[in-house]
Amino acid sequence: MIEMDAVAFDRLVTDELDLLPDEMLDGLDNLVFVVEDRPEDGSLDLLGLYDGLALTERDRYGMGELPDRIIVYREPHLHACDDLDELREEVHTTLVHEIAHFYGIDDERLHELGWA
């Protein structure tokens, strides 16, 4: 486990987002990235969550809709990692995983593509 305050973790998440390929980010629409300390149930098992309707399931989605969210949980990441390099890698993996869910890519397909 490593220690990192909320501001530094938020900066790390932003840095990792900036490193993702443009092709992965260009199609993101009506989506916000949020950093929270822990999931609502207080567990340390969940690293991230896509909260929204996948692109493949949208038929009448449009103006006036609240944005979907990708939530990255700080404390579970810190609990799971032993050093800064491992933390960066885990945040990167979480972002890719949750962005894939936005596009409607399930966990099995993520592994086939080598993204998870």
Rank of each mutant, 00 (worst) to 15 (best):
H92C: 10
L46D: 05
G62T: 03
D5M: 06
M63F: 10
T14F: 12
E112Y: 14
F33R: 00
H79V: 05
L17W: 00
L66G: 06
E86T: 15
L44S: 02
W115Y: 13
A8G: 08
G64W: 02
L19I: 06
Y61I: 04
L12N: 07
V34K: 09
G52K: 01
V35D: 01
V72Y: 00
R74G: 01
C81Y: 09
D5T: 08
R74K: 11
L49E: 13
D37L: 03
M1H: 12
L87P: 09
G52W: 00
V7H: 13
D37E: 14
E112A: 10
N30K: 09
T93R: 15
D29T: 12
R74N: 03
L28Y: 04
E65A: 15
G104F: 05
E36C: 01
D41I: 05
F102L: 01
F102I: 01
E108R: 15
E89Q: 14
E36N: 13
G52A: 02
P21R: 05
C81L: 06
V13D: 05
L47H: 09
T93M: 10
E98T: 08
L47M: 13
R11D: 10
D68V: 06
E40S: 14
L47D: 06
L12K: 07
L17Y: 04
R60K: 10
L113V: 03
D83K: 09
Y73R: 02
P21N: 02
E57K: 12
L12T: 03
Y50C: 05
L12P: 04
Y61S: 06
P76Q: 04
E98N: 08
D59N: 12
A6W: 11
L47T: 04
A80L: 13
V34S: 00
L66C: 10
E36A: 10
F102T: 07
D22M: 11
V35R: 05
G104N: 04
I71D: 00
E108I: 15
D26K: 15
I70T: 04
I105M: 02
E86D: 15
L53Y: 06
V91G: 06
Y61L: 00
E75R: 14
T14N: 15
D106G: 10
E98Q: 09
H97C: 06
G64L: 01
E65H: 11
I105E: 01
L49S: 11
Y103L: 07
L49G: 04
D18R: 15
R58W: 02
A100P: 02
G114Q: 03
E57G: 08
L25M: 15
I70H: 07
V72D: 08
H101T: 08
F9Q: 05
A8P: 08
A54G: 14
E23H: 13
L12E: 07
L31S: 01
L53M: 11
D82Y: 13
L55N: 00
I2H: 00
V7W: 10
I2G: 07
L20I: 04
G62S: 04
Y73D: 01
L113W: 11
E40I: 10
A8V: 07
A80F: 11
D83M: 07
G114T: 09
